[in-house]
Protein backbone atom coordinates (compact mmCIF):
# COMPACT_ATOMS: atom_id res chain seq x y z
CA UNK A 1 0.00 0.00 0.00
CA UNK A 2 2.71 2.45 1.02
CA UNK A 3 4.63 1.69 -2.17
CA UNK A 4 1.61 2.48 -4.23
CA UNK A 5 1.37 5.86 -2.60
CA UNK A 6 4.87 6.94 -3.40
CA UNK A 7 4.50 5.58 -6.91
CA UNK A 8 1.45 7.77 -7.25
CA UNK A 9 3.44 10.95 -7.01
CA UNK A 10 6.52 9.92 -8.96
CA UNK A 11 5.22 8.14 -12.01
CA UNK A 12 3.46 9.59 -14.95
CA UNK A 13 0.44 7.46 -14.21
CA UNK A 14 -1.77 7.51 -11.17
CA UNK A 15 -4.62 5.43 -9.82
CA UNK A 16 -8.18 5.98 -10.74
CA UNK A 17 -9.59 3.54 -8.29
CA UNK A 18 -7.69 0.38 -9.26
CA UNK A 19 -7.31 1.38 -12.88
CA UNK A 20 -4.06 3.09 -13.78
CA UNK A 21 -4.60 6.26 -15.77
CA UNK A 22 -2.37 9.12 -16.90
CA UNK A 23 -2.03 11.84 -14.25
CA UNK A 24 -3.72 14.54 -16.30
CA UNK A 25 -6.67 12.28 -16.81
CA UNK A 26 -7.33 11.62 -13.15
CA UNK A 27 -8.54 15.08 -12.28
CA UNK A 28 -11.09 15.10 -15.04
CA UNK A 29 -12.28 11.58 -14.25
CA UNK A 30 -12.69 12.46 -10.59
CA UNK A 31 -14.63 15.50 -11.68
CA UNK A 32 -16.86 13.32 -13.87
CA UNK A 33 -17.64 11.09 -10.94
CA UNK A 34 -18.75 13.95 -8.76
CA UNK A 35 -20.64 15.72 -11.53
CA UNK A 36 -22.66 12.60 -12.05
CA UNK A 37 -23.48 12.03 -8.38
CA UNK A 38 -23.79 15.61 -7.09
CA UNK A 39 -27.59 15.69 -6.94
CA UNK A 40 -27.92 12.39 -5.13
CA UNK A 41 -24.90 12.87 -2.95
CA UNK A 42 -26.53 13.46 0.43
CA UNK A 43 -28.92 10.59 -0.06
CA UNK A 44 -26.07 8.30 -1.06
CA UNK A 45 -24.01 9.40 1.90
CA UNK A 46 -26.80 8.39 4.24
CA UNK A 47 -27.25 5.02 2.60
CA UNK A 48 -23.56 4.31 2.36
CA UNK A 49 -22.71 4.73 5.98
CA UNK A 50 -26.13 4.21 7.52
CA UNK A 51 -26.15 7.77 8.82
CA UNK A 52 -23.02 7.12 10.87
CA UNK A 53 -21.20 9.74 8.82
CA UNK A 54 -23.05 12.35 10.87
CA UNK A 55 -21.36 11.03 13.98
CA UNK A 56 -17.98 11.02 12.26
CA UNK A 57 -18.50 14.60 11.17
CA UNK A 58 -19.70 15.68 14.59
CA UNK A 59 -16.52 14.35 16.12
CA UNK A 60 -14.53 16.31 13.54
CA UNK A 61 -16.36 19.44 14.66
CA UNK A 62 -15.58 18.70 18.30
CA UNK A 63 -11.87 18.31 17.63
CA UNK A 64 -11.72 21.41 15.43
CA UNK A 65 -11.58 23.82 18.36
CA UNK A 66 -13.84 26.12 16.30
CA UNK A 67 -15.14 29.12 18.16
CA UNK A 68 -16.32 32.68 17.80
CA UNK A 69 -14.29 34.73 15.36
CA UNK A 70 -12.37 31.83 13.80
CA UNK A 71 -11.67 31.58 10.09
CA UNK A 72 -12.15 28.06 8.77
CA UNK A 73 -11.62 26.41 5.39
CA UNK A 74 -13.71 23.36 4.50
CA UNK A 75 -11.83 22.11 1.44
CA UNK A 76 -13.40 19.37 -0.70
CA UNK A 77 -16.40 20.54 1.26
CA UNK A 78 -18.94 19.20 -1.23
CA UNK A 79 -22.45 19.82 -0.06
CA UNK A 80 -21.29 21.65 3.05
CA UNK A 81 -22.26 19.55 6.08
CA UNK A 82 -19.24 20.68 8.09
CA UNK A 83 -19.50 24.24 6.81
CA UNK A 84 -23.06 24.53 8.15
CA UNK A 85 -22.01 23.67 11.69
CA UNK A 86 -18.86 25.77 11.54
CA UNK A 87 -20.88 28.74 10.37
CA UNK A 88 -22.83 28.62 13.63
CA UNK A 89 -19.80 28.11 15.84
CA UNK A 90 -17.69 30.96 14.44
CA UNK A 91 -20.56 33.45 14.45
CA UNK A 92 -20.83 36.76 12.61
CA UNK A 93 -17.26 37.79 13.47
CA UNK A 94 -15.85 34.59 11.98
CA UNK A 95 -15.81 33.22 8.47
CA UNK A 96 -16.11 29.83 6.82
CA UNK A 97 -14.94 29.16 3.28
CA UNK A 98 -16.61 26.25 1.55
CA UNK A 99 -14.25 25.20 -1.22
CA UNK A 100 -14.41 22.39 -3.75
CA UNK A 101 -12.77 21.64 -7.07
CA UNK A 102 -16.12 20.82 -8.56
CA UNK A 103 -18.65 23.53 -9.29
CA UNK A 104 -21.66 21.19 -9.44
CA UNK A 105 -20.88 20.04 -5.93
CA UNK A 106 -20.32 23.62 -4.78
CA UNK A 107 -23.62 24.71 -6.29
CA UNK A 108 -25.57 22.01 -4.50
CA UNK A 109 -23.78 23.01 -1.30
CA UNK A 110 -24.46 26.70 -1.73
CA UNK A 111 -28.14 26.18 -2.56
CA UNK A 112 -28.54 24.02 0.51
CA UNK A 113 -26.81 26.48 2.83
CA UNK A 114 -28.56 29.55 1.45
CA UNK A 115 -31.93 27.77 1.77
CA UNK A 116 -31.20 27.10 5.41
CA UNK A 117 -30.14 30.69 6.04
CA UNK A 118 -26.38 30.34 6.38
CA UNK A 119 -25.61 33.14 3.98
CA UNK A 120 -23.91 35.74 6.16
CA UNK A 121 -20.54 34.32 7.18
CA UNK A 122 -20.00 31.64 4.51
CA UNK A 123 -18.01 32.23 1.34
CA UNK A 124 -17.63 29.87 -1.60
CA UNK A 125 -14.54 29.14 -3.65
CA UNK A 126 -13.85 26.76 -6.48
CA UNK A 127 -10.37 25.54 -5.58
CA UNK A 128 -8.03 22.59 -5.95
CA UNK A 129 -6.66 21.28 -2.63
CA UNK A 130 -3.22 21.01 -4.26
CA UNK A 131 -3.04 24.69 -5.19
CA UNK A 132 -5.05 26.58 -2.62
CA UNK A 133 -5.57 30.20 -3.73
CA UNK A 134 -5.26 31.81 -0.29
CA UNK A 135 -2.47 33.87 1.32
CA UNK A 136 -0.08 32.28 3.86
CA UNK A 137 -1.27 32.07 7.48
CA UNK A 138 -4.95 32.67 6.77
CA UNK A 139 -6.96 29.99 8.60
CA UNK A 140 -7.36 28.82 12.19
CA UNK A 141 -8.56 25.46 11.00
CA UNK A 142 -8.81 23.49 7.76
CA UNK A 143 -10.95 20.41 7.33
CA UNK A 144 -10.95 17.94 4.48
CA UNK A 145 -13.64 15.29 4.90
CA UNK A 146 -13.73 12.34 2.54
CA UNK A 147 -11.80 14.43 0.06
CA UNK A 148 -8.11 13.64 0.37
CA UNK A 149 -8.45 10.24 -1.25
CA UNK A 150 -9.57 11.95 -4.47
CA UNK A 151 -6.59 14.27 -4.62
CA UNK A 152 -3.90 13.25 -7.11
CA UNK A 153 -0.83 14.52 -5.22
CA UNK A 154 -1.68 14.24 -1.54
CA UNK A 155 1.74 15.50 -0.38
CA UNK A 156 1.34 18.63 -2.44
CA UNK A 157 -2.14 19.16 -1.01
CA UNK A 158 -0.95 18.70 2.59
CA UNK A 159 1.85 21.24 2.07
CA UNK A 160 -0.56 23.66 0.46
CA UNK A 161 -2.89 23.38 3.46
CA UNK A 162 0.01 23.82 5.85
CA UNK A 163 1.04 27.03 4.09
CA UNK A 164 -2.32 28.76 4.49
CA UNK A 165 -2.86 27.74 8.11
CA UNK A 166 -1.96 30.26 10.80
CA UNK A 167 0.84 29.14 13.14
CA UNK A 168 -0.92 27.08 15.81
CA UNK A 169 -3.74 26.36 13.40
CA UNK A 170 -4.82 22.81 12.74
CA UNK A 171 -5.68 20.47 9.90
CA UNK A 172 -8.31 17.77 10.31
CA UNK A 173 -8.46 14.95 7.78
CA UNK A 174 -11.54 12.75 7.96
CA UNK A 175 -11.17 9.82 5.62
CA UNK A 176 -11.89 6.17 5.07
CA UNK A 177 -9.01 4.16 6.43
CA UNK A 178 -7.90 0.68 7.31
CA UNK A 179 -10.20 -1.32 9.59
CA UNK A 180 -8.38 -2.54 12.69
CA UNK A 181 -10.14 -5.88 12.72
CA UNK A 182 -9.63 -8.48 9.98
CA UNK A 183 -13.19 -9.75 10.08
CA UNK A 184 -14.56 -6.27 9.84
CA UNK A 185 -12.26 -5.58 6.93
CA UNK A 186 -13.70 -8.55 5.01
CA UNK A 187 -17.25 -7.56 5.73
CA UNK A 188 -16.45 -4.03 4.76
CA UNK A 189 -14.80 -5.12 1.50
CA UNK A 190 -17.86 -7.07 0.59
CA UNK A 191 -20.03 -4.11 1.45
CA UNK A 192 -17.99 -1.56 -0.42
CA UNK A 193 -17.12 -3.61 -3.49
CA UNK A 194 -20.30 -5.48 -4.23
CA UNK A 195 -23.11 -3.86 -2.33
CA UNK A 196 -22.18 -0.21 -2.47
CA UNK A 197 -21.82 0.05 -6.26
CA UNK A 198 -25.13 -1.77 -6.68
CA UNK A 199 -26.90 0.61 -4.32
CA UNK A 200 -25.16 3.39 -6.23
CA UNK A 201 -26.53 1.99 -9.45
CA UNK A 202 -30.00 1.87 -8.02
CA UNK A 203 -30.13 5.29 -6.40
CA UNK A 204 -27.86 7.44 -8.50
CA UNK A 205 -28.11 5.31 -11.61
CA UNK A 206 -24.36 5.28 -11.75
CA UNK A 207 -22.70 2.03 -10.74
CA UNK A 208 -19.33 3.01 -12.14
CA UNK A 209 -18.98 6.13 -9.99
CA UNK A 210 -19.55 4.20 -6.82
CA UNK A 211 -17.26 1.44 -7.96
CA UNK A 212 -14.66 4.18 -8.19
CA UNK A 213 -15.48 5.41 -4.68
CA UNK A 214 -15.09 1.91 -3.26
CA UNK A 215 -11.79 1.38 -5.03
CA UNK A 216 -10.40 4.79 -4.12
CA UNK A 217 -11.12 4.02 -0.48
CA UNK A 218 -8.85 1.00 -0.69
CA UNK A 219 -6.06 2.89 -2.42
CA UNK A 220 -5.96 5.53 0.30
CA UNK A 221 -3.00 5.44 2.73
CA UNK A 222 -3.59 3.68 6.02
CA UNK A 223 -3.54 5.48 9.40
CA UNK A 224 0.19 5.40 10.06
CA UNK A 225 1.11 6.26 6.47
CA UNK A 226 -1.12 9.31 6.41
CA UNK A 227 0.21 10.42 9.80
CA UNK A 228 3.75 10.18 8.43
CA UNK A 229 2.73 12.13 5.32
CA UNK A 230 1.32 14.89 7.50
CA UNK A 231 4.55 15.07 9.50
CA UNK A 232 6.54 15.28 6.27
CA UNK A 233 4.35 18.14 5.14
CA UNK A 234 5.31 20.10 8.25
CA UNK A 235 2.58 19.28 10.77
CA UNK A 236 3.40 18.58 14.41
CA UNK A 237 1.62 16.82 17.29
CA UNK A 238 0.01 14.69 14.63
CA UNK A 239 -2.43 12.07 15.87
CA UNK A 240 -5.35 10.04 14.65
CA UNK A 241 -8.53 8.56 16.07
CA UNK A 242 -10.09 5.45 14.62
CA UNK A 243 -13.83 5.45 14.31
CA UNK A 244 -16.18 2.58 13.69
CA UNK A 245 -13.36 0.08 13.94
CA UNK A 246 -11.00 2.03 11.70
CA UNK A 247 -13.32 2.18 8.70
CA UNK A 248 -12.84 5.88 9.13
CA UNK A 249 -10.01 7.73 10.81
CA UNK A 250 -9.74 11.34 11.87
CA UNK A 251 -6.19 12.72 11.62
CA UNK A 252 -5.23 15.96 13.26
CA UNK A 253 -2.03 17.94 13.00
CA UNK A 254 -0.92 21.44 13.95
CA UNK A 255 1.16 24.00 12.11
CA UNK A 256 4.06 24.91 14.38
Amino acid sequence: MADNNTAMTNDKTTHFGFKTVPVEEKASRVADVFHSVAGKYDLMNDLMSGGIHRLWKRYTIELSGARTGHRILDIAGGTGDLTAKFSKLVGPTGEVVLADINDSMLKVGRDKLVDKGYASNVRYAQADAQYLPFPDNTFDCITIAFGLRNVTDKDLALRSMNRILKPGGRLLVLEFSKPTNGMLEKAYDFYSFSLLPKIGGLVANDTESYQYLAESIRMHPDQETLKEMMNEAGFVNTEYHNMTGGIVALHRGFKP
Partner: peptide, 16 residues
Amino acid sequence: AVHSETDISLLGQYEG
Protein backbone atom coordinates in the same frame (compact mmCIF):
# COMPACT_ATOMS: atom_id res chain seq x y z
CA ALA B 1 -23.98 24.26 25.16
CA VAL B 2 -22.77 26.70 22.53
CA HIS B 3 -25.30 29.37 21.54
CA SER B 4 -25.54 30.75 18.02
CA GLU B 5 -27.91 33.28 16.42
CA THR B 6 -30.62 30.71 15.81
CA ASP B 7 -29.90 27.61 17.82
CA ILE B 8 -27.84 25.70 20.34
CA SER B 9 -25.06 23.19 19.72
CA LEU B 10 -24.34 20.53 22.30
CA LEU B 11 -20.71 19.48 22.00
CA GLY B 12 -18.82 16.81 23.89
CA GLN B 13 -15.61 18.83 23.61
CA TYR B 14 -14.92 22.53 23.45
CA GLU B 15 -11.53 24.21 23.73
CA GLY B 16 -12.51 27.80 24.42
